[in-house]
Design a protein around this nucleic acid. Structure first.
Lengths: 195, 195
DNA sequence: GTGTTATCTGAACGTGCGTTCAGTTCAATC
DNA sequence: GATTGAACTGAACGCACGTTCAGATAACAC
């Protein structure tokens, strides 16, 4: 009894991606079966292959679209004037964006090892591009004498790790609002870069 | 042809744990099969069950012994006098200890979701105890007026995330020595806590 | 009302999984 | 030199995996 009511192609596709995102984040790519995803979508496993080439392609797609969305959103973000404004913008943007997509963030950072080499290179390049955005800010601020940094590259990695760590413990409705968390982190980041 | 030369029980056990640590860290718990581990040890898969109850027990064992080693080592670490010394000791200890065991660290932070509830509670308690060590230092320093922190709990998580992040990019023989990395991170941590 | 086509089912494919266990081998013991 | 027992093999267990595909169904075009 296929096609039980109306056309589903524009429903099943997004639902597949949403279910995969949730399950991969919760249990890990390797631990989730296509049948589990299909059950969540409300469909048999075979039907999923109308929307994806294979399981590996599904994972790569999820990561690619997350990172492309991240880069596009950061491009549109107002960055104020000068490195200090830009760093604050980055900090607040990073926390806000990541807290809104905890599952996608987790997958993009944790399932890199499950990508085959071709996909890995592509995804890693996107991540690198995002990191470079922060590194440029730090370098500019250092050159302008606004920041006091012993090592720009290391500071980039340290700040990103610190900010991304928020997603491991933050839960909506907890002690602190996302806005408050961003403010507190910005204070720590500002001090850490010596500004 | 079992027992091809000499008694192996004191060799196979550690080799099993070493192989599992390496493979779990590289590919993830769910993606590694008992047969892969056995092949690395140089034994048939069935022989592994002389040393472990099951695959889940192997994972729990690896995480438990890593965290117990971490707590024991931190207990023995000289902490100087006062919160500032203690925080520096923690920073340097954490980086040194973690850089020496990248595989175990990765597993302990990433495979929590693959523990069954009983094991999870136990492992999570050990992790919490370690975090509390840092939180106590920060709270003491704040009370003594040595640190300037908007939120002690949040600072604890931020510092741990920042420091643990080192393991994601550090490679021996790279641009910076472990000692130098620790020094640079200590400078950033010190600034971040307002000291 | 007929034909077309997108969408899905249900069964099957070969493969590999974690785990068990009877049997084999060999160092150690007496 | 017989006995013991730790350490391991090799085969098997039932099950679940990712993926394919012929056939069924229902919405749509005319």
């Amino acid at each position: 009894m296929a096609r039980t009511s109306g056309s589903h192609s524009q429903i099943t596709g997004p639902r597949l991606r949403a279910a995969a995102l949730r399950l991969f984040a919760r249990h890990g790519y390797a631990a989730v079966s296509m049948r589990q995803i299909a059950a969540e979508v409300g469909v048999q496993a075979g039907a999923l292959y109308n929307y994806i080439p294979d399981k590996q392609g599904l994972l790569a797609d999820l990561m690619r679209s997350h990172l492309e969305e991240l880069l596009a959103a950061w491009d549109l973000e107002p960055k104020g004037t000068g490195p200090l404004d830009a760093l604050e913008a980055f900090t607040r943007f990073h926390i806000r964006f990541h807290l809104e997509r905890p599952d996608a963030v987790f997958i993009a950072y944790m399932e890199l090892r499950n990508l085959d080499p071709r996909n890995f290179a592509e995804i890693e390049a996107l991540r690198k591009r995002y990191e470079t955005g922060l590194e440029d800010i730090l370098r500019a601020g250092r050159a302008a004498g606004v920041f006091d940094l012993p090592d720009t590259k290391l500071a980039t990695l340290a700040v990103i790790a610190m900010l991304t760590g928020v997603t491991t413990w933050y839960r909506p409705g907890g002690r602190l609002s996302a806005e408050r968390v961003a403010a507190l982190y910005w204070e720590m980041v500002r001090k850490a870069v010596g500004a």
